[in-house]
């Protein structure tokens, strides 16, 4: 079949242009990260990677991700179940509300929490009487990360669950299945790849979030500096190799994320074809 743009010259020209632009715009920066990290050889790279400062930053980064991902996973499933399986007044409003973290600047996210839980905030002043401090401490960083990443799982699940409909689950109910059995035996197998994808996106953002956590972190060494904040700190100290060492670690995680995503897409694509 003859299609637009299938002429050899057009096709080769456009593919070449796409490859060149992607190389200039995306591949060179990605390669640049690893190049800068290794610019002075393996020894300083290794030294930076294994320093206490980096170890503490990795620890905090993992802690934030470990707390954020399960919270938003559970919330995402409940939200998706609610808005795709039931109709009720305010359903659209709820979906719009969930998009807010997507739309606003991460600095605004940090600011909202700082105003609430900071010493001058109404909740913060109550908590500080109880000697509980959330801002400029790791719990605050977890809170803003939960805020920033809360739409990801739900946004992957909602279109899929809407498209699949509820016929299978209704059949399950007719056959006497309870809520948990229904979810475990029918819903979960249907949505598992979208769920994995949502988790990967949440995790990537939780690990890499910068703007929101920088507002509530207070940059206390050994306590509230995660990897992205460490990258900033070292870069501003003119420790380029140090900054790019941590950046390379984050970039490697990003590449792994992309690989898992590509594998998942390939998997679902193949399933669609055989189905």
């Amino acid at each position: 079949m003859k299609r637009i743009g299938d002429g050899a010259a057009t096709r080769i020209g456009l593919i070449a242009l796409a490859v060149i632009m992607t190389t200039l715009f995306l591949v060179i920066p990605l390669a640049g990260i690893f190049y800068q990290a290794l610019a002075e050889g393996m020894a300083p790279f290794w030294q930076n990677l294994t320093s206490t400062f980096t170890r503490e930053a990795i620890g905090l980064t993992l802690l934030i991700a470990l707390l954020t991902v399960p919270i938003n996973l559970v919330f995402g499933i409940f939200l998706a179940w609610l808005v795709t399986r039931f109709t009720f007044p305010g359903r659209r409003l709820l979906q719009t509300l969930i998009d807010i973290p997507f739309a606003v600047s991460p600095v605004v996210a940090g600011l909202l929490y700082l105003l609430l839980y900071g010493r001058t905030g109404w909740l913060g002043s109550i908590l500080s009487e109880q000697d509980v401090q959330l801002m400029f401490a790791w719990p605050g960083m977890v809170l803003v990360t939960v805020f920033v990443t809360c739409p990801f799982v739900a946004r992957e699940l909602i279109p899929l669950m809407q498209a699949q409909g509820s016929a299978e689950e209704e059949a399950g109910v007719t056959l006497g299945a309870g809520g948990w059995t229904l979810f475990r035996r029918i819903t979960l197998p249907n949505i598992r790849w979208a769920l994995v994808y949502g988790v990967i996106l949440t995790n990537a953002r939780a690990i890499g979030e910068f703007g929101a956590v920088s507002v509530v972190s207070g940059s206390i060494r050994g306590e509230t500096i995660n990897l992205p904040l460490q990258v900033e700190l070292l870069y501003q100290d003119y420790n380029t190799v140090g900054a790019f060492t941590s950046a390379a670690l984050l970039a490697a995680l990003a590449v792994v994320t992309l690989m898992i995503k590509a594998m998942l897409e390939w998997h679902t694509h193949r399933r669609e074809k055989t189905a």
Binding site: G208, E209, G211, E232, F244
Partner: peptide
Amino acid sequence: FALPTAVAGIT
């Protein structure tokens, strides 16, 4: 989307 913004920034 996968790369942290601070990493993109310094690079």
